[in-house]
Amino acid sequence: MARIRTTVDGLVYEDDVEPRMLLVQYLRERLGKTGTVIGCDTSNCGACTVHLDGLSVKSCSVLAVQANGSEVLTVEGLERDGQLHPVQQAFHDNHALQCGYCTPGMIMQSIDLLGDNPDPSEQEVREGIEGNLCRCTGYQNIVRAVQDAAQKMKPGAHASTSSSAAAPVAGGGA
């Protein structure tokens, strides 16, 4: 067992974990953060995407012990005072989800992408989410949603999620 201390969605946690425990398991099974899901065992699907110290990662390919001392942001930590993050809102507005299983990972990766590139072209969005698989939407409305969110986030602050200080208020434009 290893002792880890993490900040997840703004709250501090301390736990003993087996070294083999994956970050996604820790989030789901120990913290009850079941909004983040597991879709594969080869890091292809991206459903488990969260932000670790401000960068998107596949939480199935990070050990919980590796998150010791880090800040984690999940889809459950995006809302601010009951307001959806602009990317969440855009997913709803543009019908960018059907079954919703890939959605948490898609949203987290899309926020990361917009932090990096606030005004992506269609092709840049497609490449920016190429690590996230969706089986329902054909991606078209997801691409639309990300571009829509980019427009809505423009007037405000940059969607800076690449600095850990910004977590858990990723996006900031809300």
Binding site: R28, G35, T36, V75, E79, L84, Q88, H92, G100, Y101
Partner: peptide, 14 residues
């Protein structure tokens, strides 16, 4: 959508 985009889900594995 609201539940699904905020992670307030009830998958069987949850």
């Amino acid at each position: 959508d609201r539940r699904l985009i905020t992670g307030r889900t009830r998958w069987t594995d949850n």
